[in-house]
Nucleic acid binder design. Structure first.
Lengths: 234, 234
DNA sequence: GAACGGTACCTGATACTGTCGGTACCGAGC
DNA sequence: GCTCGGTACCGACAGTATCAGGTACCGTTC
């Protein structure tokens, strides 16, 4: 189970002024008056990402653009000169965080050789990251939401609650500790939800029945079946 | 594995005017001039939820309050008299949807007797729901987001991409169809993410190491281990 | 080949627009 | 005089316009 670098967190591409027009394939010969700024632009973007990180630490996941700009020691104008909008800044921050997290994940995985331990190590790493800075975590996983103190909003949470209850019942009937029920319930719902979101986002690249079969297999048997028996799953 | 009705989608509690002040435990004797409106209020809330559903169908998941009000044939003022803010409306809509979805899920589960088939049926039901009205689905699971045409934002997606790549490699090395890789990768990441979100939201009701152990077990072995062997997991 | 105007990009600020969630206030009617 | 409902407004915040000033490149001209 090797994990080579697949698209290593595609680094901050320049997105500005003259080279901004929708992916012109063969760009006309770049003027040096333009290209001489490339290094500077990259650096400035990085600084702005830094500032955003700092601002999130200071004001929480709901920071405004003004506060980010202030943290960078400048004004919004400059921020918008380097990032088309808030969303673009957000993905840049995500890439930054990913470029720190993914190597740690790979390292954790590669320092084990039994597959199950790889999974355990990756999970542990992910949890450690998220616990280290929950505010940044919220900024980076929950898209751009205003601050939500008690986000019991969301259908997924309600369904997860029910699923957790069901799992709890099952565990108790089996005479086992029901402590695993809540993570189990929410986890399985999250499994289906994330896969479904991907499926919708990718414009349904497989039949719904196929997706359902894969998810059932995964939810029921977990990842353990992956390395084994080269059979057709049905 | 019985799934009895555990907190059946706590129905629209009234949240309005006089009884709105922060959970007064023993409410002062309700005036009949007040209480005589209760039925009307409940109905009105239901109508507003209906209108929201319709507005989502018409304008997409990014509907504004004005459009919702217009769809209800009234103005925002009325909406805000019945719901403290947008978030409260949102949870009401979620409850409504849940009250339709959860019975279907139970039915699907109870019409099977082998646990694995229960899971399959539930997943199928969930996917069918989401495919039937993706716009409503987006409104109801992704909290309050502005319109996102290409939401490749979010750390979770990036990590999911990497996980999918890793799974794909593993599948190919095992000589199996890598079609399951993408749902698998995003699914597992979603599993961990949702459980972690729950854990943070519930203010860390267990040790991180315990959570990690449960998630590892779940991700690796799936739900199949739940009904079996009453042993201590370790 | 050095000087020169024009150009393409930067920095930064202030002040604005527009949208949208949420509210103040006012009239109507039981 | 209580609630209902509407108009018209407020405030926050993403995003823009415009301005003034600065520096390196480009092409031409003498």
């Amino acid at each position: 189970m090797k994990v080579e670098s697949v698209r290593p967190a595609s680094q901050d591409k320049i997105a500005h002024g003259s080279e901004r027009r929708e992916s012109k394939p063969a760009a006309e010969p770049r003027d040096r008056r333009d290209s001489r700024w490339d290094a500077h632009r990259a650096q400035r973007r990085a600084e702005l990402v830094d500032a955003t990180l700092a601002a999130v630490g200071k004001h929480g996941a709901g920071v405004g653009m003004d506060e980010i700009a202030a943290e960078a020691g400048t004004s919004k104008t400059v921020v918008y000169r380097h990032f088309a909008d808030r969303a673009e800044l957000h993905v840049a921050v995500c890439n930054r965080v990913a470029s720190q997290l993914l190597p740690k994940l790979r390292e954790a995985i590669e320092s084990n050789d039994r597959p199950r331990q790889m999974v355990a190590a990756a999970i542990e790493t992910y949890l450690a990251f998220l616990e280290a800075d929950p505010e940044l975590y919220r900024f980076v996983v929950h898209p751009p939401q205003l601050d939500r103190p008690d986000p019991l909003t969301g259908l997924a949470d309600l369904v997860g609650e029910q699923a957790a209850a069901a799992v709890s019942v099952a565990l108790q009937q089996a005479g086992r500790d029901p402590a695993a029920a809540a993570p189990g319930g929410h986890g399985v719902v999250g499994l289906v939800r994330s896969a479904a979101d991907w499926w919708l986002r990718a414009e349904r690249p497989m039949l719904r029945s196929e997706l359902a079969a894969h998810l059932t297999e995964l939810a029921w048997s977990g990842l353990s079946t992956i390395g084994n028996h080269p059979q057709e799953e049905k």
